[in-house]
Amino acid sequence: MPALAVALAREPIPRVREAMMTALIRIGNAASIEVLLPYLRSQEASVRAAAIEALQALPEAIAPFMSPLLNDGDSDVRLLATELARNMEASEATRLLCELIEHEHHPNVCAAAIDVLTEVGTPEALPTLERCSARFAATPFLPFAVSIAMSRISGEES
């Protein structure tokens, strides 16, 4: 694992990096997660995207890391971390994302969490979504996103 981590850090070719990340997915333990997590902070969009895809493939292994990620001081990391909940068990994803939304001040992070809840959220998210819509009433996209999310979660829209 340390050798793979070092090689990944030095690898400049995207396809080779992706292959290394695939190897980490196959290993699939906490050490794999710890190797992949720093790439969420990469300056390169393609590296961030590859790390997200790799981490999404390990929903059980990523679970213990979710709370620190969703409370990270960097809003870009919190935003990307919401994507990692997409493949988690629905009730756990809903709990994590609602906790985030309740105290999150950055509209883009809330928007990302709402996007994931729209797909995987359970009805327990509805009160949190309503409060979010009211809190960000001056940011038109958020009330719009909340209305769609609530409709889909409630089954009013397919």
């Binding site: 928007a111 996007d115 729209t118 769609i148 999310a149």
Partner: peptide, 11 residues
């Protein structure tokens, strides 16, 4: 990649 964003822009 966000269906909500696409819907918002489209609208």
């Amino acid at each position: 990649d966000s269906s909500l964003v696409r819907l918002y822009y489209r609208s």
